[in-house]
Amino acid sequence: MASRFSVARAARQLTSSAIRRPFAPITCQRWQATPAQARLFTVTAPALEKKYTEDHEWIDISADGKTATLGISDYAAKALGDVVYIELPEVDLEVGAGDAIGAVESVKSASDILTPVGGKVVEVNSALEEKPGGINKDPEGEGWIAKVEIDGEPEGTLMTKEEYTAFTEEA
């Protein structure tokens, strides 16, 4: 567990430096870990890069920083097994960071989908109501769950793809 926390802490540092430079190309991520660099920036701006939570959701914030698309990660979709039902949030639902924005059922298991950012649900992926299995096929693309008009900053640890991969290998 201790090692997991340290990963999370490291990830948080990486994340905070990453979101301060929205236009940093992905190939430049390595140097973002340098603490000296991070200290140069103090303002937070929306990230353009897809980020992952410790609960295996992903969040993709639009270029203007106003809306976020949410979904579950490839790793989560594999771990859950065949999804047979997805409970989507209602459009216009106000959510707080950390709240459930839906739930999935797979192999007799109900699991909540949490949102790392608060705001108002503006769109849901209704195609998943017809074909819940779509979330297993392409969880990080066509299988997105909802779009939220952001109110406030994302909460909790957000990781880049690389950090998240390391996190899942650790767990």
Binding site: D55, V107, K108, S109, A110, S111, D112, L114
Partner: peptide
């Protein structure tokens, strides 16, 4: 039978 609830 079996049923599950998964949380954080």
């Amino acid at each position: 039978g079996s049923a599950y609830k998964l949380t954080r």
